[in-house]
């Protein structure tokens, strides 16, 4: 299916993939009683965070995630990731994402998927904030010629 107004959109693949992401969060919530938050799991698995999931649980999640993505991409139903921007941009972005998700206690999965569906006001504020600053950042990058098209 295509959306005439938005030629690049993939609504069906988006909904299907989103459903799988939700299902993964359901497995974590009902199976282990936890939030499937990637930044938290990564901090715990790497030993940067002292609290949270047991380390073995966090490590298993962090290993499973790239494996699932790789299997889908190799079986050709996935999209080849396109990285844009310089190494300096990746480094700056990574630093901000790492620091910001720890300070704000979560990212797109923990606050976005899990928190919003729980109707958590904290997560609603966080999600609105990172969405707004994401839009603003890319808007500025566009205005200053860092993005073409």
């Amino acid at each position: 299916m295509m959306l005439p107004a938005f030629p690049d959109a993939a609504p069906v693949a988006g909904l299907a993939g989103g459903f799988l992401i939700g299902l993964a969060a359901v497995i974590m919530l009902l199976g282990l009683g936890r939030i499937a938050g990637v930044s938290g799991m990564l901090a715990r698995a790497s030993g940067i965070a002292d609290t949270g999931a047991p380390r073995s649980v966090a490590l298993a999640f962090v290993v499973g995630l790239p494996l699932g993505a790789t299997l889908v991409t190799l079986s050709s139903s996935g999209v080849e990731p396109r990285f844009t921007g310089s190494i300096a941009q990746l480094v700056i972005a990574g630093l901000l994402v790492g620091f910001g998700t720890r300070l704000g206690s979560g990212c797109t999965s923990g606050h976005g998927v899990c928190g919003l569906s729980r109707l958590s006001r904290r997560s609603m504020v966080a999600t609105l904030t990172f969405m707004t600053s994401g839009f603003a950042t890319v808007g500025l990058m566009h205005a200053f010629g860092f993005i073409n098209g």
């Binding site: 700056i92 910001g100 990212c107 966080a126 904030t129 990172f130 600053s133 990058m141």
Partner: peptide
């Protein structure tokens, strides 16, 4: 919460990547 989410959003926008 707000400052963390705001900084995260900037990084997310620069690279198009979240964790």
């Amino acid at each position: 919460l707000v400052a963390g989410a705001a900084l995260f959003g900037v990084g997310w926008g620069i690279a198009g990547l979240c964790p």
